[in-house]
Amino acid sequence: MLGIGLLTGVTTVLFGFGGGFAAVPVVVWTDAALGADAMRVATATSAVVMVVNAAFATTVTARPVLGALRGSTGLLLPLAAGATAGAFATRLAPPVLVRWLFVAYVAITIVDLLLRPGFLRPRAPIEEPADGPRPLPAVLGAPIGAVAAFLGVGGSVMTVPAMRRAGHTMHVASALANPLTLTIALPATAVSLCGTALPASASAHVHLVGLVDAGAAAALLAGALPVIGVLRRRPPRIPDRIHAWAYIGLLTVVVAAMLLSGVSW
């Protein structure tokens, strides 16, 4: 779990993934004894990890980079509202359904990034806005927040491609995903911590706070936070196109991890 925490620190900085895509599969596998409820615990634990990782990553991001979010602030309130609805919905939905939707959503995203112009292949210059990257429209906030909180993914899998197609480099798009992830993960975490926990018989081997696996969250954060601090101060120089391909490669690994994990379908 500590090793996965190191990985989430890297993905937080390089791809804007505050922990959701890396944390959900490993918590599902670690808490497999919970059966179908492992997915519910994994999404709740992921939300806590994302709040801390995204908050820390945002505070250590250069102010000029965060300035690129100007014009998209109207997105924040719809993101939070959608996330609240998504967090409540995931408590009511069958865990197996959430799991299948998680895999399907990431798989569809991979296909979209590969086939639709704008992520790997820049749009034609005539389509580029004359005054720089476009802000994300506020109308996208509620659906992004709802889907991200429902699946426990944090939203970066939607916001990074959207900002990339709006004209940002991968470096900037990944950095800006952190404050947006924080907006989504905060209400999702509140719902997870305040909700009804699983029956004691089902969670005897796991220390749960609400639906959050406290031990897993602590280990993930212990691995992630030092990595975030180091990489934000000394970011690696990665060519933009390779950075984009690495983003797709990470999503592919996540899908494979979910399909190969040992929880019964």
Score class of each variant (00 low, 15 high):
Leu251Asn: 12
Leu75Gln: 14
Thr45Ser: 01
Pro94His: 11
Phe119Tyr: 13
Met1Lys: 05
Ala257Lys: 07
Ala217Met: 06
Val28Leu: 04
Ala104Gln: 04
His207Val: 12
Gly118His: 09
Leu69Arg: 10
Leu92Trp: 14
His205Pro: 00
Val13Pro: 08
Gly71Phe: 13
Gly141Phe: 12
Pro122Trp: 12
Gly18Ala: 04
Pro161Ile: 11
Thr8Lys: 01
Pro129Met: 05
Ile144Cys: 12
Val227Lys: 09
Val52Pro: 10
Ala83Ser: 15
His207Asn: 03
Trp100Pro: 00
Pro226Thr: 07
Leu250Val: 12
Val60Met: 02
Val139Cys: 03
Ser261Pro: 00
Leu114Pro: 10
Val157Asn: 10
Thr196Ile: 10
Leu75Val: 15
Ala36Leu: 11
Met163Ile: 05
Gly195Arg: 13
Ala173Met: 11
Leu250Asn: 00
Ile238Asn: 03
Ala175Cys: 05
Asp112His: 06
Thr45Val: 04
Val96Leu: 06
Ala36Lys: 12
Leu2Pro: 05
His168Met: 07
Ser46Pro: 07
Ile110Met: 09
Thr109Arg: 00
Val139His: 08
Pro179Val: 11
Ala173Ser: 15
Phe17Asn: 08
Val255Pro: 04
Ala138Asp: 14
Leu182Glu: 02
Val157Ile: 15
Ala244Ser: 14
Leu151Gly: 11
Val10His: 07
Arg123Met: 10
Pro78Met: 14
Leu180Phe: 08
Gly229Cys: 00
Leu186Gln: 11
Gly19Leu: 02
His205Asp: 13
Thr159Lys: 13
Arg116Phe: 05
Thr30Phe: 01
Pro235Cys: 06
Met258Ala: 00
Arg165Asn: 10
Leu6Ser: 07
Leu66Arg: 12
Thr84Ala: 15
Thr58Leu: 04
Arg40Gln: 10
Ser264Gly: 11
Phe17Lys: 02
Asp213Glu: 06
Val206Cys: 01
Ile228Glu: 01
Met39Tyr: 04
Leu220Pro: 02
Thr43Ala: 12
Ala130Ser: 15
Ala62Val: 12
Phe119His: 12
Gly118Trp: 10
Val103Cys: 02
Asn178Gln: 15
Ala44Asn: 05
Ala257Val: 02
Asp240His: 13
Ala214Asn: 03
Arg63Met: 08
Asn53His: 02
Ala55His: 00
Phe119Met: 08
Ala204Phe: 02
Ala54Met: 03
Phe17His: 03
Ala138Ser: 15
Pro137Leu: 09
Ser261Met: 03
Ile144Tyr: 08
Ala188His: 04
Phe119Cys: 09
Gly71Asp: 11
Val147Cys: 10
Gly9Tyr: 08
Leu66Pro: 14
Leu92Asp: 04
Pro122Ala: 13
Leu260Ala: 09
Pro239Lys: 13
Ala216Met: 08
Pro137Met: 06
Leu220Gly: 00
Asn178Ala: 13
Arg121Glu: 13
Leu79Asn: 15
Val157His: 06
Arg40Thr: 13
Phe119Gly: 06
Phe102Val: 11
Leu79Arg: 15
Ala166Glu: 05
Glu128His: 14
Leu120His: 09
Leu7Lys: 04
Leu211Tyr: 03
Phe15Met: 14
Ala89Ile: 14
Leu6Asp: 08
Val65Thr: 15
Pro143Glu: 13
Thr169Trp: 04
Val27Ala: 00
Arg91Pro: 09
Arg40Ala: 10
Ala32Pro: 02
Thr11Pro: 00
His171Trp: 05
Ala57Lys: 04
Gly215Ser: 09
Val96Gln: 06
Val157Arg: 05
Leu250Pro: 00
Val41Ala: 03
Gly145His: 12
Leu220Val: 00
Pro179Thr: 11
Arg63Pro: 15
